[in-house]
C-alpha cells in the first residue's frame, strides 16, 4: 500500500469554542463602571512621570511604579491616527464577520497621555483626518463593557 492518489482529508473543529471569563481587575472595573453609570471617562496618573493612562492599569510600565491617583478625562479629544477597514474578517468571539467598512481610530482624549482605541463614525469620510476633534457617543443601555461607548464622531 502507498499514499499515492489518496484523498487528502481534513478535520474540522465545527462549532467548538473555548469559554473564558476574563478578569477586568480593580482599575479596569473603575473605568468601565464610571462609563456605565455616569458616562464619564477617568484616567490614572503616574506619580513619577505624571503620565495619565487610559485605559487605567496598576503599573506605569516605563517607570515601574504603582499608580493610585484617578484624574478626570474628557469624552472629547482628537484623532491621533486611524484607518478605514474595508475587508471583512471573522470576529473570534462570535465566529462571524463584522460588516465593513468602518473607521478604526486611536483617540487622544483631552487630559490623557495615551490613546484610546475605538471606532470612529465615517458617514462623512472627508472629515475623518488625523488631528480631527472627536467626541464619544454612549450607548443608551450600558453593561460595563468597552462597547458602552458606541463610537466616536467628528465634531468640527
Amino acid at each position: 500500500m502507498t499514499n499515492q492518489g489518496v484523498d487528502l482529508l481534513t478535520i474540522n473543529s465545527g462549532e467548538a469554542e473555548q469559554p473564558f471569563c476574563y478578569t477586568v481587575g480593580l482599575e479596569g472595573s473603575k473605568f468601565l463602571t464610571e462609563i456605565r453609570d455616569n458616562k464619564r471617562f477617568v484616567g490614572i496618573k503616574c506619580p513619577k512621570c505624571g503620565k495619565v493612562y487610559v485605559p487605567p492599569r496598576k503599573v506605569c510600565g516605563p517607570c515601574f511604579t504603582e499608580m493610585t491617583e484617578w484624574v478626570p478625562v474628557k469624552d472629547e479629544g482628537y484623532l491621533h491616527s486611524y484607518t478605514i477597514l474595508r475587508f471583512a474578517f471573522l470576529d473570534p468571539e462570535t465566529g462571524k464577520e463584522k460588516p465593513v467598512p468602518y473607521g478604526y481610530a486611536f483617540i487622544r482624549l483631552d487630559g490623557a497621555d495615551t490613546d484610546f482605541q475605538h471606532y470612529v463614525e465615517i458617514k462623512d469620510e472627508k472629515k475623518v483626518k488625523i488631528g480631527a476633534r472627536v467626541r464619544a457617543v454612549f450607548e443608551e443601555k450600558r453593561a460595563g463593557k468597552i462597547t458602552d461607548v458606541k463610537h466616536f464622531v467628528v465634531i468640527d
Binding site: 485605559p55 491616527s81 477597514l85 474578517f89 468571539e93 463593557k145
Partner: peptide, 30 residues
C-alpha cells in the same frame, strides 16, 4: 485574522479591534 485578533486584550482591545492589518494601517497613516 480571527486568530490574530485573540492576541489582543479581551477587555480593552479585542471588542473594538480591527485585525492586524488595520493596526499597521494606522501606523502607515500616521
Amino acid at each position: 485574522t480571527a486568530a490574530i485578533t485573540t492576541a489582543f486584550d479581551p477587555i480593552w482591545d479585542r471588542l473594538v479591534f480591527a485585525g492586524a492589518i488595520s493596526g499597521l494601517a494606522v501606523e502607515a497613516m500616521a
